[in-house]
Design a protein around this nucleic acid. Sequence first.
DNA 1: TTCCACTATCGAACGTCGTTCGTTACGGCG
DNA 2: CGCCGTAACGAACGACGTTCGATAGTGGAA
Lengths: 238, 238
Amino acid sequence: MTGPRALSTEGSPRGRKRGSHSLEAVLSAAVALLDEAGAPALTFRALAARLGTGVGTIYWYVSNKEELLDRATDHAIGGVLALVEAQPESDDPIADLRAMAITLFDAIVDRPWLSAYFMRNTDVQGNSLRLYEKLGQQTLRLDLTPRQRFHAVSAVTGVVVGTAADLGVEAPQEVLDGHVDRDAYLGRFVEQWRSLDGAEFPFVQQIADEFAGHDDRDQFLAALELTLSGLRLQAGTR
Amino acid sequence: MTGPRALSTEGSPRGRKRGSHSLEAVLSAAVALLDEAGAPALTFRALAARLGTGVGTIYWYVSNKEELLDRATDHAIGGVLALVEAQPESDDPIADLRAMAITLFDAIVDRPWLSAYFMRNTDVQGNSLRLYEKLGQQTLRLDLTPRQRFHAVSAVTGVVVGTAADLGVEAPQEVLDGHVDRDAYLGRFVEQWRSLDGAEFPFVQQIADEFAGHDDRDQFLAALELTLSGLRLQAGTR
DNA sequence: TTCCACTATCGAACGTCGTTCGTTACGGCG
DNA sequence: CGCCGTAACGAACGACGTTCGATAGTGGAA
């Protein structure tokens, strides 16, 4: 055998001699490493050290790093899914869609490494699919064609991931570590942008001030709102 | 000295003994490697071999891999910028915005590696900034507040990059190599999706057929249209 | 001419990474 | 007891990014 293939069948935790390893423990430790210091911190050696095992052991539960990342991502998405499923359903599908998108966005902001792997995860049975389903179910309540529903969901996830990736990556290591103040970091850009030629860069100059005091969340909410109002318009005119 | 710092001052190509290296040549070769086999193919050793030099030489033009990727990305964006600047301006700013977004999308589809590095590129003076400016200039022609303009541009780029990244990553190596037919690859998902429990996954089931015959470009255009119609609504109601 | 600083090039060497593989050990079953 | 499936382990391998000392060619100053 090459290892356990089924994810959900984590059956019968019978007694083990040392450190209850199991896939669950591996994934939790992987997510913890990712949370603490981002993607580069997740190495097989670091993971083995944290689990108190050897590197070879991890390969028993996971066949390579790609699968490790996929499973860790799905593990994290599971938390998002739980939040989304706990959300009460209102009488406005678009409002519910908004709430779900915001929940997903917040999760990615919390875990910037998610943005890079969220879409790479093509695992067909998993929490990502369930989340996709949850979003789609809201479009079922709208007067749309199946194709429009399909496009609507991909548009919403596109906005969430696109914006979150943009913002998450925007902050370099020095800011994440707290060594450099975020406002000071943004200030550098504002200063450079303001000093540009006004004839050649009229937009960037006008925007510099907005950028100085901008809030990532507002930026995302505005982008989401454009998509959702477009969707509402579409649902009303059929 | 630690190397040439200025990007644009590629002055006086005087005669050199062997292989006219220069930053320009390094970047072109890097982009070529990325185009041919994606991000993992771009290594310092492969790049040196292609240029007929040693690995150390590349570090004379570029201080590390991150900078190499940033500059290579900016190099590629330069091509997009040229296309965007060549576009004639119509009397409808939103139509022009759409055309620019499509140009950018097509470029990313052509070069999937761009999606991963497009946003990471925080280089303040560069083609990315100029492209950002070009998009923003269209919003200057709309009746919006500066903040709304700022949000509009970030929404559009978010949709483009988010969707392009989704679609670009969707195709694994086997499809890129042509070993597996794209329709057959998509068919696997459709089959699995259709076999799901209809009570638990009503949306995914309904969407499976759409997914089978779907076109990436249409999917993007639909998402973009939602954002743009939301923007048009916003510009009209102020 | 000689000298020196600058520009540019080179590849061996270092440490880290993902991954492989031979080996060991335990527990239940015939 | 011997066997087999499960689980664990870490040395070793090749590839990677990066560093560094050595080595020229060039142009101006002395």
